[in-house]
Nucleic acid binder design. Structure first.
Lengths: 209, 209
DNA sequence: ATAGCTTATATCGGGCCGATAGAGGTTCTT
DNA sequence: AAGAACCTCTATCGGCCCGATATAAGCTAT
C-alpha cells in the first residue's frame, strides 16, 4: 500500500475538508493517533504536492489582517480515486518502535531508582492513552471502521497495562537487593502497592559489565 | 533518550562483536526485531561515524580474495559509557504505524473480498511473529531483560490474535451472506455500506482474560 | 553452467521528523 | 492596562533514516 503522509491526508480529507493545521490536530488526538504519525514538515509539502497533482483543491480564507490566511483543503474526485486505489492494495507490515522496550532489554544495567521512574511513567502513558481512547469512543459517531480500531486499541492497551502492573512487583523484587540493601524502599514509588516489601529473595541479577 | 541507530548498534555490540551485516540480521530476526528497525543505509554510516568518534573499534578480516573484507566491530569503553548514558535517560514515547489499521478504519470502502484477504494475511502475520517469539524464547538464554520483552510480546500478540479471530466472526456475521465463519473469497458486492453498522455486539476480548 | 540465494560491503535519492520562525489571536495573571 | 503564556495558522530547513541499488564472491540446485 502507498501509505505515506499524502494518503493519510487524503483519508482525512475524504471525511471532511480541513486545513493543514487541523489535519495535524486530528493526527495528534483523533482515532488516527493510535496508529499513525505526521508532522507539519510532511503535511504541508504533501498538501502542496497534491494540489499540483489535482488530488486536492484549496479554498483560501483571507480575513484581511496581516496573518497567514486559512487554506481549507478539499479532496477532488481524482483524489478519491487515488485513495480508493491505495485502500485496495495490500498493507505493509506494522512498524513498532519502542525505546522503553529497548531499555527494558538492558534493565540490569539501569539504575533501579531510575528504572522505577521510567516504568511508572510508561505505565501512566498507556493508561492515559486508554483514557483518551475511551473518551473519544463516546464522542465520536462509531462507524464500523472506527469501532474496530477503537476496540482493537482497547484490547491492546488493556493487555499492556495489565501486564505492566503484574510484572512490576516481580521486577522490583529482583532489583530490591541492588537498590535497597535490606531496607524497605517504600519511599520511592508511589503507585506500587507494597509489593516491594515482600521477602527479599536472593537473586543473581548483577551480571557482567 | 538518544535512541537512534547508533544507540541500537552500541546495544548490540555491548552483547557481542559483530559486522554491520550481522547487526542487520539481529535486528531483523532477534529480540530487537519486535520493537526496532534499522536498515543498511543507516547502520553502515552509524558504525563509520562511531568509529570516527571512538565509540567502537574495528578489526578487518581480509581473506585475500577480491570480495569486501569482513569488518568486525567492537564496542570501546567510551562506547559503553555512551550507551550507559543513553540507558539512564527517559525513553521517548512509542511509535506505532499500521497501514492495516488505517485500512480497517475505512473498511466500508474496501471490496469485501479483498478485505478478507488483507485481514487473514494480517492475522497470519501476527501468528507468525508469535511463533518466532516462542521459538526464540527457547533458544535464547533468558536474562531478565530478554524475558521481560518476550513476555510482553507474547501478551500483546496473544491479545491481537484473539481479537482478530473473535472480531472476524462478528464481521462475517455482519456481512451475513459473505461466508459466515468460514471464508468465501468470491464476492461481488461493491461496498457493504449500512449492512455493517447495525449489529453492534460486545466482544469478549475487551474485558479480562 | 546458469540461475538464484546468501554473505558482505557501501551509496544515494527522497520521505519524514523535530526544531524553528513569524504573525496574530485569546486568556489569565499581576 | 501591561505582560506572560498559550493557541491557531502558515511554512522551511537540517538531518536522520528507509528502500533501492550496485558490487563481488561463494554456495547450491537444476
Amino acid at each position: 500500500m502507498v501509505m505515506n503522509v499524502r494518503t493519510l491526508c487524503l483519508g482525512i480529507l475524504s471525511l471532511r475538508e480541513a486545513t493543514g493545521y487541523e489535519i495535524k490536530k486530528m493526527v495528534e488526538k483523533g482515532v488516527f493517533s493510535h496508529f499513525i504519525d505526521a508532522s507539519f514538515g510532511s503535511i504541508y509539502p504533501a498538501l502542496a504536492q497534491m494540489l499540483r497533482e489535482g488530488l486536492v483543491r484549496v479554498r483560501t480564507e483571507d480575513d484581511g489582517s496581516g496573518r497567514p490566511p486559512r487554506k481549507v483543503y478539499q479532496i477532488t474526485e481524482q483524489g478519491r480515486q487515488a485513495l480508493q486505489n491505495a485502500l485496495n492494495t495490500d498493507p505493509a507490515p506494522d512498524k513498532f518502535k519502542s525505546e522503553f522496550l529497548f531499555q527494558m532489554l538492558f534493565m540490569e544495567r539501569i539504575d533501579p531508582a531510575h528504572l522505577a521512574v521510567i516504568y511508572d511513567a510508561y505505565l501512566e502513558e498507556q493508561e492515559a492513552e486508554l483514557r483518551m481512547l475511551e473518551e473519544e469512543a463516546q464522542t465520536m459517531p462509531a462507524h464500523p471502521g472506527a469501532r474496530f480500531v477503537q476496540d482493537y486499541g482497547r484490547a491492546m492497551l488493556g493487555t499492556a497495562i495489565r501486564f505492566l502492573k503484574d510484572k512490576r512487583a516481580e521486577m522490583m523484587r529482583a532489583f530490591a537487593e541492588v537498590g535497597g540493601t535490606g531496607e524497605r524502599p517504600e519511599e520511592n514509588a508511589p503507585c506500587c502497592g507494597g509489593a516491594f516489601s515482600s521477602s527479599a529473595e536472593k537473586s543473581s541479577v548483577n551480571g557482567e559489565d
